[in-house]
Design a protein around this nucleic acid. Structure first.
Lengths: 132, 132
DNA sequence: AATAAAATTAGTATAATACTAATTGTTAGA
DNA sequence: TCTAACAATTAGTATTATACTAATTTTATT
C-alpha cells in the first residue's frame, strides 16, 4: 500500500467517522478539512487512485482496502492516545498530537505496543476513545 | 518554530550525528540521505531559511535553535524507541519506525511520556539508544 | 600549475497542497 | 414544471517540497 499523506489520512478518517448512515458529502469533507471543495475533491481523487474509496454513482464508497487502512489508523491512534493520556496529557491534546502520526505507524508495531500497554479500550477519562 | 519535513529532519540529524569533530560535508549528507548533492544542498538551504543551520565560511554550523530542535527530536526518538523495544520490537526496526514520526512529536508530550515509561537511557539490548 | 574532487548554479519535473472563478448538476419549493 | 439555491466539478494558477541532470565554479591535492 502506498503511503498516505496527512491530508489523505484526515480525509479517509472524516469519511468513515460519520455517524449518519448517509454517505458524507463533499462539502462536509471540505468543511471538516477546512478547505474549499475543489481542494477536497482533489484529495478524494487521490484516495480513489490509491483504491481506498470509489465513486459509485456519485457516492463515495470506501473500499475493503480503505476500511482496512482506516482500522489500522484507528488502532494506532487508540494505542498512542492511551499512552499519552496515561502520561498525563489531556484527551483532547492527546488526540490532537496523535493525529499527526497515527497514519505513519506500522500496523504490526501498533499491535505490539497495544498489547504491551494492556489493550486499552477506553481512555482513562472514561470516555470512549474517539479519533476525530 | 516552523514544522520540519521528514527530509529536513533527516538532514539535521545527519549533520549532528557525525562522530568526527570535522563539520560534515555536503557530499556526506547527500550520501546519508541517498540523494544527489544538489538535492542535499536544497535541503540545507531550507534548514538555513528556518535558522537551524548557518553557512559560516563555507562550513555548516548548527545554530542554537537547531541544536534545540535536534535535542527535542532525539528525546522523542529515545522515548518511542524505548517503548517499541519494550513491546518486543527489535532495536533496528524500532529505530526505523520511530524515525518516521519523532520529529512530529511535541517536546512537551515526549517529555511526559518519557517520565511515564521511566526515563530509559539505554535500550533493553544494552546498546546505547542511537538515533541514526 | 594541473588534475581531481566537491560544491554550486541553472534548468527541468513531479506530487501534494490550495485557491478563485466559472460552469454544470441536483434538488426542493413556489 | 420551472427556477432559485445549493453542491459538485472543471479550468486555471500558485506554492512548497522533492529530485534529477548537466554545466560550471571552487577548492584541494599532488
Amino acid at each position: 500500500m502506498e503511503k498516505l499523506t496527512q491530508r489523505e489520512r484526515d480525509c479517509l478518517v472524516a469519511i468513515l467517522s460519520v455517524n449518519s448512515e448517509f454517505p458524507i458529502r463533499l462539502s462536509e469533507i471540505a468543511n471538516k478539512l477546512s478547505v474549499r471543495s475543489p481542494t477536497a475533491l482533489n484529495v478524494i481523487k487521490r484516495l480513489s487512485e490509491k483504491n481506498l474509496i470509489k465513486d459509485k454513482g456519485g457516492m463515495i464508497i470506501v473500499t475493503k482496502e480503505g476500511k482496512k487502512v482506516y482500522k489500522e489508523i484507528i488502532e494506532a491512534h487508540r494505542c498512542f492516545e492511551a499512552l499519552l493520556t496515561e502520561s498525563g496529557i489531556s484527551l483532547d491534546e492527546a488526540c490532537k498530537q496523535v493525529r499527526k502520526f497515527d497514519y505513519l505507524i506500522d500496523p504490526n508495531t501498533a499491535s505490539k505496543v497495544l498489547s504491551h500497554i494492556g489493550n486499552p479500550k477506553l481512555s482513562k477519562h472514561g470516555r470512549k476513545v474517539i479519533v476525530n
